[in-house]
């Protein structure tokens, strides 16, 4: 069990507060650090990776301070966002050098290159690589010592869909193996597809934490939208609107469905099946029409 603990961490640059009193724990599995550009994700990741001192608070790995403690890198792997990476070396030379700096050698480097499926281009200079290839070689360099914690800053930037899928599979596997994987992203689908746990950062603050449905439910002060199809849409609509848990119902004739706005999430989810059963209405479709991370996110940002 390897746990990253961020305890009341703030970081400011001059007058600008980049990270504002964030407390969170990142444990085994894949965690997505989600937030718009400029929210403070990179600042937070740099502090987790030991490349930035917190202005206040502490960042620890299983109780060990990360800042100015090079021994934590035995357990920590880092995939930086920046592109600089010894372009004059070949992919293999680069990963071998990274292995050697961990006291390992060719064998581990070969294994890491195989893991990211880069063997086919390992003898080409890094300067000739595409962005996705560079990203995978960076991954190999971070995986070479089989760290229990992996930090990735915007790892999917510039990757094509196939490379993205491959990297997602790889990270998912690592999470399933019990490693602590944390990646940042401003793209919601990425986080939604990959992360079992999400931490949302907005304007330097910790806006929400949990899986994305939970985060969604935390936003009780705003209506939840559902698309419902049933054997008798109008009868169902009449029964539901009588209850204070719904704020509005639209009969969408083109879709052949009801669009329902619920204001009391808990009460509505109990009401709907009860009403349908009492009135002998068959529910054909019940789908949350905006329970994508995109809508969760836009509400969080607007809040």
């Amino acid at each position: 069990m390897t746990t990253l603990t961020i305890d009341h961490v703030s970081r400011w640059f001059g007058n600008v507060v980049a990270v504002n009193d964030i407390t969170m724990t990142v444990g085994p599995g894949v965690t997505g650090l989600l937030g718009p550009n400029g929210a403070g994700k990179s600042t937070l990741i740099n502090m987790m990776g030991g490349f930035l001192a917190p202005s206040t608070g502490s960042v620890t790995l299983d109780g060990d301070r990360i800042w100015r403690n090079e021994q934590v890198y035995r357990r920590l792997g880092i995939v930086p966002e920046r592109e600089g990476m010894y372009d004059f070396l070949t992919g293999r030379e680069f990963v071998v050098a990274n292995a050697e700096l961990h006291g390992l050698g060719e064998r581990e480097a070969r294994h890491a290159l195989a893991t990211v499926q880069m063997e086919y281009a390992q003898d080409r200079k890094i300067s000739t690589y595409s962005k996705g290839m560079r990203q995978r070689v960076k991954m190999a360099s971070a995986l070479v010592h089989e760290p229990s914690v992996l930090l990735l800053d915007e790892p999917f930037n510039g990757m094509d869909p196939r490379q993205r899928m491959q990297l997602m599979d790889l990270l998912r596997t690592m999470g399933d193996e019990g490693r602590t994987v944390l990646f940042s992203s401003h793209i919601l689908e990425e986080v939604e597809q990959l992360a079992s746990h999400i931490e949302v950062i907005v304007a330097g603050r910790h806006a929400a934490s949990g899986d994305f449905r939970r985060i969604r439910r935390l936003m009780t002060d705003r209506p939840h939208r559902y698309l419902v199809r049933s054997s008798d849409d109008r009868a169902l609509a009449a029964a539901l609107i009588a209850d204070p848990s719904t704020a509005g119902i639209e009969v969408d004739l083109t879709e052949g469905a009801l669009r329902i706005q619920a204001v009391d999430f808990g009460r509505f989810t109990e009401l709907l099946p009860k009403v349908a059963r009492e009135r002998n209405i068959r529910l054909l479709t019940v789908s949350p029409s905006d329970e994508s991370l995109e809508s969760v996110f836009s509400y969080l940002v607007a809040a």
Binding site: G50, F51, E70, F94, A97, N98, H102, S141
Partner: peptide, 18 residues
């Protein structure tokens, strides 16, 4: 140049004394 382009990260993210 390593500090400039950020590649120094690969040296520093290692258990090697500064």
């Amino acid at each position: 140049p390593e500090i400039d382009d950020g590649s120094v990260v690969y040296l520093l993210a290692k258990p090697v004394k500064r």
